[in-house]
Design a protein around this nucleic acid. Structure first.
Lengths: 139, 139
DNA sequence: CTTCGTGCAAAATGTTTGCATAAGC
DNA sequence: GCTTATGCAAACATTTTGCACGAAG
């Protein structure tokens, strides 16, 4: 556990950020979240651990961590931004429109096709995101 | 031109909506927009033609038209919602991160892969959207 | 001890809504 | 005429910011 704390401290320092209590707490909360929480949910979960954290700090920390590449901001339709720890393998998201559940999709073929497509148009992909809204098939 | 107006009237009626001046103007503005404007841009362009249109009506009309399937709402990162006339062929979007330009991408292979992927997980795609942020390749 | 981060409250942004009036059919 | 749509202004939700204080290095 203190090993984890050192890891967080190091990760923040490497990103040129001070390892404050609030940032460490927020980062650990996000690491332990299996879902993709938004700022408000992160505020609630972080507060449960350290009640000194303010919503403003949650927002500022999220921006800083995103800029540092430690976390990823996701834009879903009609929703506030959600976040996840930066994934090692590129993946997309499928949202179950009935339950709201978010499923991660990984597919190398699609990634390659996408890059190829961009290259043909003279572009280099910086980032991408696919969001599929779907419903469980009948039967 | 009056043929166009009749088309718009018909399209709105078919959607179960009254063919008001404001809706016809907004719809024609969007049809004549090569880009993907947001509510505010549509408000400005619509006002240039009919200065009685209010921003509230722009929002209400956009929601109504989207629900009717006549237009499509696009969510880009860190941006307000943008709109386009519902495309006949499914396509995705590439955003040039330096210029902000939005390019439409159509690729059957990716569409098929995506459907196949969803099917394997027991889902039926309702809608999907891919947004690629990219930069022009050097040389 | 200097710089950077934080809490608080206020502001800014994008979008929605209640209500009385106006327009569509 | 009856119903739906509109304009206006106020409300809302989310995110950002100014400022004085506190903590990190």
């Amino acid at each position: 556990m203190s090993a984890e704390i050192n890891d967080l401290t190091q990760a923040l320092r490497d990103a040129g950020l001070r390892a404050t209590q609030q940032r460490m707490t927020l980062l650990s909360v996000l690491m332990n979240s299996a879902d993709h929480p938004n700022a408000d949910e992160l505020f609630v979960r972080t507060r449960a651990i350290d009640d000194s954290v303010s919503l403003a700090t949650v927002y500022r920390t999220l921006s800083a961590l995103e800029e540092a590449g430690l976390i990823r901001r996701l834009s879903f339709e009609n929703e506030s931004a959600r976040y996840e720890i930066t994934p090692t393998a590129d993946h997309d998201h499928l949202v179950d429109i009935d339950t709201g559940e978010v499923i991660e999709l990984a597919n190398e073929e699609i990634n390659h096709l996408r890059e190829e497509l961009a290259r043909r148009m003279g572009y280099e992909i910086v980032s991408h995101h696919t969001m599929i809204r779907a419903r469980k098939s009948q039967k």
